[in-house]
């Protein structure tokens, strides 16, 4: 799987350059939205890699190499998680340092956790369809899910009163939801994955 992750990181490296500039710019403004947006955006990076794979027909070559289907599918999840974790770390550092310096506020740890969970959930929901149909055809599902997740996140996080009406704190509910969604999504992706 290390080989596949390395390949994907090389593929998205160019994207990351632009991404870091956006992150730096957005980090100057401390807001919940920025943190959620950046981390959830990172969950999209596996789709960039899948798009490049599709464009070059890499999957046909990969099928001839000693990679298991499990490695191929899991590597896309791990790539998403890695990118989100790195972005979460960058976001925290930038918003803590720059945010404190400019506005005297820092991003709450809970917001970051919720952002990571949202990214994991959106990845878990969309990846099976994208692995099955490719990025082009999976895009519609992807857009609907991302907008849905972002809208719900905005409502849930801005309306802080919501936290008190939930059966458990959002900080506990979201990780549980992320774990369940991922646990269902990975076997589904394994079943749906095919060489396009």
């Amino acid at each position: 799987m290390k080989a596949l992750l390395l390949k994907d990181l090389y593929v998205i490296w160019k994207q990351m350059g632009i991404f870091l500039v956006v992150v730096l710019a957005m980090s100057l403004v401390n807001s919940t939205f920025n943190c959620v947006f950046l981390v959830v955006w990172c969950s999209m990076l596996p789709y960039t890699s899948i798009a490049y794979d599709g464009q070059s027909h890499w999957d046909q070559l990969a099928a001839m190499m000693p990679y298991s289907k499990r490695d191929i599918v899991l590597s896309k999840y791990v790539l998403g998680w890695l990118c989100m974790a790195v972005m979460g770390a960058i976001c925290t550092v930038m918003q803590t340092v720059v945010g404190r310096f400019l506005s005297g506020e820092a991003t709450e740890g809970g917001i970051l956790l919720i952002s990571l969970c949202l990214g994991m959930i959106s990845l878990a929901i969309t990846l099976p369809a994208v692995l099955r149909f490719g990025v082009e055809r999976g895009r519609m599902i992807f857009l609907v899910v991302i907008f849905g997740v972002a809208a719900l996140a905005g409502i849930a996080l801005d309306a802080t009163d919501l936290r008190f009406s939930l059966p458990m704190p959002l900080e506990a509910l979201m990780p549980a939801a992320a774990v369940v969604a991922t646990a269902v999504s990975i076997p589904l992706s394994m079943k749906l994955y095919r060489v396009n």
Partner: peptide
């Protein structure tokens, strides 16, 4: 598959990779 070298009708490596990067990926493969 470790013992089989495959060359397909097109070289299906991702377009953004260089030969050096392909070597590093294959070293892990």
């Amino acid at each position: 598959k470790e013992d089989v070298g495959v060359v397909l009708d097109e070289a299906y490596y991702p377009e953004t990779l260089t030969a050096v990067q392909v070597g590093r990926v294959m070293a892990e493969t």
